[in-house]
Amino acid sequence: MKSSEKHTITALVEDRAGVLNRISSMFRRRGYNISSLAVGKSESPGLSRMTFVVDGDAKTVEMVVKNLHKLVEVIKVSDISEENAVSRELALIRVKCDVASRSEIMQIVDIFRAKIVDVSQDTLIVEVTGNEDKVNSLVDLLGSFGVFEVMRTGTVAMSRGTSFEQDKPVSNPRILENAS
């Protein structure tokens, strides 16, 4: 067992005031480390999906999953670290740029299939989408030109293929209806 690694956990939660507070309070109280957290509406009205990237060994992650489950407003929790999953993050990177460095930066941006979304006298904003490693390497590479600001959404993730069908909570017909 590796002592510490990153695990991706997704959760379907009720979209109510205080839910995020309840979840973050649980993480804080039990001393679990979240390295990223993303929240947004799901396919069903009234429900949100969250993606957590958690640092910890297998036991910690198991306890995170159990303690998330224990929260009344958390409907479904999946640890998808071991699964074949798609995980993506979006980042905006403000990088220093002058005439001399512009074309080199553009080349790097191209290789990463990133985009330049804003240009000013001596800075560029680069938009990149990818998994965490990809975003990390782009930030590293651009670092040599001078990075002023990095804004990341945190990872969102979904398992590939049709396994999602088993993912649906049977206890809640409401969601199945909405999904069909």
Partner: peptide, 12 residues
Amino acid sequence: EEPGELNLPGYS
């Protein structure tokens, strides 16, 4: 109104 059936999808 009397409350209906409980609807607590996240609590089993």
